[in-house]
Simulated scan of single mutants.
Amino acid sequence: MSPSPASDGVRSIQRALDVLALLDEHHPTRTLREVVEGAGLPKTTAVRLLATLESRGLVARVAETTYTCGPALLRWVRLADRAWQVSPEARAAMRALVERCGETVNVYVRQGVQRVSIAQEEGTATVRSVVAVGEPMPLGRGATAKVLLSGAPDDLVTTLSEADPDLDAATLARQVASIRETGYAVSHGERELGASAVAAPLHGEDGRVVAALSVSGPTSRFTGERIPGYVEAVVATAHALDEAGLGPVEALL
């Protein structure tokens, strides 16, 4: 049986998104060859997709066979920026937490089987932890990921372990259960070697875990002497944000 037009359309959309996903802050441009290799597409398909994306302003040509983001994405960038902004009060609380701990502060949300930072205030140290806001990250590793899992369906742990053989479902489930009891998580080098984090859940008006607040930085600064202070500061700020709310963005969480 030949594929239906609907399934062909979905596959084309997926391929187009795969092409756009190849562009990021580390790769602001991509050659046709890189698109073919990175998206795993036949050259003729890549050429056709790029031509379609270019005609809609979603990619722009900077050389004969080199592409970058197109101007049509600017309106979506502005729209997403407005929709996913935390409130000024939440920003102020994040900055206060940076001043208290000296480390980078992020608010993460869960998107399916991934997590994404929607707000970041960088730490004050020269060497600090910085992530790309809006970039999908693993949900099975790190303090923030496990805090988000504490508010997710239990079967998501199984789904993650099935997709990643290095994740042990029983161990991850125990860690998530512990976080539900303690209200915070600490991790060292789980997502990235030499990086540590302390995280606590943020709750919506209905009591659901809608986001996670974290401080992160080099493991060398997350010592046994400092971690209790970090935990106290993160948990206190999370409780304050539970009372104040994150702003209109909560409607999306």
Results as ranks from 00 to 15, higher is better:
133 V>Y: 07
147 V>W: 06
150 S>F: 05
95 R>D: 15
156 L>W: 09
87 S>G: 07
135 E>T: 06
90 A>K: 11
82 R>D: 11
108 Y>P: 00
104 T>Q: 03
135 E>K: 12
130 V>D: 07
148 L>D: 01
120 Q>S: 12
128 R>E: 05
142 G>P: 02
82 R>Q: 12
86 V>S: 07
105 V>D: 11
136 P>N: 05
151 G>T: 08
147 V>F: 06
98 V>Y: 10
112 G>N: 08
131 V>I: 14
110 R>Y: 10
151 G>E: 06
156 L>Y: 00
92 A>M: 14
145 A>M: 03
91 R>Q: 15
90 A>V: 09
116 V>Y: 08
84 W>M: 11
150 S>K: 07
107 V>H: 07
143 A>L: 00
127 V>Q: 12
118 I>Q: 07
80 A>E: 10
83 A>K: 13
96 A>M: 10
146 K>S: 04
83 A>C: 03
132 A>T: 11
104 T>N: 01
146 K>M: 03
134 G>P: 02
155 D>I: 00
81 D>F: 10
123 G>R: 04
75 R>H: 11
83 A>S: 15
151 G>C: 11
111 Q>I: 03
157 V>P: 01
78 R>W: 03
121 E>H: 13
144 T>A: 15
105 V>A: 12
101 C>R: 09
114 Q>P: 01
112 G>R: 14
77 V>E: 14
128 R>M: 04
133 V>W: 06
77 V>R: 15
87 S>Q: 02
98 V>G: 13
142 G>L: 06
114 Q>Y: 07
99 E>T: 14
156 L>N: 06
145 A>K: 01
86 V>H: 04
80 A>D: 06
122 E>N: 04
96 A>H: 15
77 V>I: 12
135 E>M: 07
129 S>G: 00
104 T>G: 09
80 A>L: 13
